[in-house]
Nucleic acid binder design. Structure first.
Lengths: 335, 335
DNA sequence: GTGAAAGCGCTAACAA
DNA sequence: TTGTTAGCGCTTTCAC
């Protein structure tokens, strides 16, 4: 490993000057700097981040905790955060929780020892507790809220997106509209459920508890929930389904196939979160699309900005609009 | 920030003993250790990785460079590496190249300054050059080879997988089998192309250059290539298509729709790499599936093993078998 | 504009 | 079994 001293020796300057040549260009004579940089380059010298971080107390890194990279929506978030971080010369440590708050806790512990300067987290239901571990670290909650008051959040307008989706179904003439929603201890699920309720209320349609099923956020949960909702006599079965997330929408589609239901003739479907397969399927699925990349990019910039500017006075709460995309999975009910 | 000294003071021991209590349990008296740990815990003390890494010259971290997390196959690789690393208490720094060797170079520079102990990389075509940057760092090439001789690689049997796929089409009775292949300066594309050629040769079918199109690995490239291949008179058009990757398969499917071709009646399709939508589409797509998670997990374990055991004598070259999954997109040609 | 010296938090000789 | 001491590579006062 080649270090400052070696460069300093060859360049006939002190260690301090070499350091300054890299980090404080203005404090060093132009010609000296040229020489130092030249030699450093020849030697293949590169400052050791670890040492620098230790000395300055700034690691130039941030943590990112999401639920699962395998979910394409989350992968988008990762990309957005990475791109923003890279642009500002920060490195990101990523961890997955798989929605498990024990894993989240471990991730936080591991992260903490690496001295990140900030954290972007998609909180599990145990986050309010777990986040105590990182004390005063600047945190931005991404995509959903932990419930900690005063927290900084960057989220999507789940309520409005859902309301629009359900409103769309109502406009088409649907009256029995089912919903498959995620676990209600997660803020996004709550908000989407509220949007559904509100849209119904606004249309004067009574909310029926038995038209709402809670799923586990995964494909199998969606399938199971859809089976419960759809295995009824024709005149009791919902004619439309609003599904609260990506994976569960896939499950619901499989359920319609299991039951021999045609989309959209027998059942209209709207999903939350756009994806590859939603466009590709025939019929293509109508969805509430989220600006995941922008959301993540913005969250990261907000965090870095806060780091550079110092503490913000009040809680930042950013909401990005969703985008409703009408495709072929929704139509008027049969008769 | 609470440090060793604070714990040491409260526990009435020296700094060294505290350190040992954490890293060398056997070298410290049982009761002393209990006390130290107890106090550390109360104080919320956690060793500073940065300082530890600097002192020991071991960062407990590895780098991971892939082309793009947004590709679900790559996301799998990330998960596999992460899981293996976490299990061994290593942290991973991830970077994306987007197949751009400039970005790869930057990633390597950034990575280097963080002093990782090893690197897992999915090399771009410029990797043979770029990797010189990290000198003697232990490297494992994942999914494809940079071409550097003596390199350690963990890959899938691309040749065999392709050969099986094309063989399957031949068995069904196809004679005009087209291929859409990725850029041939990437080892996987080459190998898949070889598999295709070999299968044809084994069946005594002449290789026709005009049945092979090179795509850019992305959806648009696949679509374009498929258009070129499929926009011909019925008796010249290939009756089957073997597509060399995920994204391009989607493009090819769109092309068949553009052209009003029915799968599998007018055209059989086999893709490389399984995915969500391949199962979900109707007809579901026949594919050569890769054990991406296992591949990545194995690569990481191999790397860590090498780090712990010390330099390996000879180059490691691991190949995992692919899995051919017959679904509904392949059938006998029309007449 | 540059250098000397101290020290970030930790670990590993070496001594006791 | 424990303590003392030096130093990982860097940045940053404080002098000059």
């Amino acid at each position: 490993m080649i270090d400052v001293d070696q460069v300093a020796n060859l360049a006939q300057v002190s260690r301090a000057t070499v350091s300054r040549a890299f980090t404080r260009p203005d404090l060093v004579n132009h010609k000296t700097r040229e020489r130092v940089l030249e030699i450093a380059n020849q030697l293949g010298y590169q400052p050791n981040q670890l040492a620098s971080a230790l000395r300055r107390g700034q690691s130039q890194s941030i943590g990112l905790i999401i639920s699962d990279v395998l979910n394409p929506g989350n992968a988008m978030l990762v990309k957005g955060v990475q791109d923003a971080a890279t642009k500002h010369d920060y490195t990101v440590f990523m961890f997955n929780t798989d929605e498990d708050s024990i894993k989240e806790r471990k991730a936080l512990e591991s992260l903490r020892s690496h001295m990140p300067q900030g954290l972007i987290i998609m909180p599990t239901s145990g986050a309010a507790q777990n986040l105590k571990l990182v004390g005063t670290l600047p945190v931005i909650e991404l995509d959903r809220a932990s419930g900690i008051k005063g927290a900084h959040t960057v989220m999507v307008d789940n309520f409005g997106g859902s309301r629009t989706a359900v409103h769309h179904l109502i406009q088409l003439g649907h009256k029995r509209i089912g919903m498959i929603v995620g676990s209600l201890d997660i803020s996004t699920a709550q908000e989407r459920h509220n949007g559904y309720q509100t849209a119904l209320a606004e249309a004067g349609i009574a909310y029926q508890e038995n038209l709402v099923q809670i799923g586990n956020h995964r494909e199998d949960g969606g399938r199971l929930a859809a089976h419960k909702l759809l295995s009824r006599a024709d005149d009791e079965r919902p004619t439309a389904l609003f599904v609260g997330n990506n994976e569960m929408t896939i499950g619901a589609i499989f359920a319609t196939r299991d039951l021999g239901l045609d989309i959209p003739a027998d059942l209209s479907i709207v999903g939350f979160d756009d994806s590859r397969w939603a466009k590709l399927l025939q019929p293509a699925i109508t969805v509430v699309a989220q600006p995941a990349y922008e959301l993540a990019y913005l969250a990261c910039e907000t965090l870095l900005d806060r780091l550079e500017r110092g503490k913000t006075q009040k809680a930042i709460e950013i909401r990005l609009a969703t985008n409703f995309i009408t495709r072929a999975s929704t139509a008027a009910p049969k008769q």
